[in-house]
Amino acid sequence: MKIKIENRALKSEELKHLERITGEVPARCYQCGNCSAGCPLSYMMDYPPSQMIRLLQLGRIEEAKRAESVWLCVSCMQCYARCPKDVSAGTLFEGLRHLALREGKDYRKIKELDMPFLKGAPQQALVCGFRKFVS
């Protein structure tokens, strides 16, 4: 892939908005990769946490929003616990979920959910899942 980096994209309004709602500053990240090392979902992600932050650093927020990683993060906070720069990738993921959900782009429709799961799973899984995946 080849991209054109533009000053505008580095300081885009949407990026600033993401920083505002999350309180996180992606520029603080120095790409050591500790988050990606510890993230239990890294292996499944299209962009592991450090690369997600990299996309934000490069102003590629649209790509970040489209990434499946956003919906794989379970907020276990391992990334944040290990981050030497006190950046919370988990919070940035949550922010990206908000951006999508607030646009009404739900990741799952309640109707699509599996009935046995709905009956057998602990309530907290449902509540948490709805909050993370549904607007």
Binding site: L72, C76, F117, A125, L126, G129
Partner: peptide, 19 residues
Amino acid sequence: IECCGAHLAMTREDVVAKL
């Protein structure tokens, strides 16, 4: 102290099964 997969139970059973 690793993650079990948490609420991905709703969307990604495969991932939960692995973790």
